[in-house]
Amino acid sequence: MSWARAFILVGSGLLPLLVLVAAATAWHLAIDVFDIPPYIVPRPVSVLESLRTMRVELTEATVRTAVAALSGLAISTAIGTAVAFAFAQSSVIRRAFYPYAILFQTVPVIAIAPLIILTFGRGFHSVTLVAIVISIFPIVTNTTTGLLQIDNQLHELFRLHGATWWQTLWKLRLPSALPWMISGIRIASGVAVVGAIVGEFFVGSSQPGLGAWIQRKTASADLPALYATIVASTALGVGVFAALTWAGDTVLRRWFGTRLDGSPFQG
């Protein structure tokens, strides 16, 4: 292995880490240079200290939020796929409802969350509902596209051999839509976490997830704790997204022999 190659291999993990260290150092120095008081911006060291002291509560909160987000995602996947099937089966249904599916995607979650909580009450179910509302549309739109984008010649092949409606769905439409569905679920996983946190933010202390912590620490102006909660929220978002990307890649590799981007998988 050449030095250049070794440098690239180590560097792929090392470079982002270097950027992080440099940013934290700059942050630390900026506080001294500009004389910023700790109630405006805390030092990176005190954020780390908060992460250490709050690790039990933060882990608990992260797990709560993860459960709400993943429950929301699971329900979104089930309902979203069913809706996409209805859309793919009838152009009348699609023409009637599809514009609203697009329209709803543009409604900010921050506006809809308080409404959901007012209507359905404070609790886990409302938090999950916010996660569902925000994560269902990428699944609906992606799966619908996947179910409809069938190669014309494959469709002719199925017709040539007198395939039934059921055979076409089961052997052609559904497997063809799978990569689209997986990609939709992946996008939805990121926003489901956002939805759960926003939901918890409005529900407050009765549902003590990361959102509730953000709200509480903002109110008490405990900046190191607030920063630590943000770190945990980001870690959860990245973790869920990475887990689903891995799961999606595994499924595609098993069923298609290809990766998510369509490149062939050898071996």
Binding site: D151, L154, E156, L157
Partner: peptide
């Protein structure tokens, strides 16, 4: 029927 493209099911 043999189509212009192989038209195989990739899975």
């Amino acid at each position: 029927f043999v189509f212009q493209d192989p038209t195989l099911l990739p899975w």
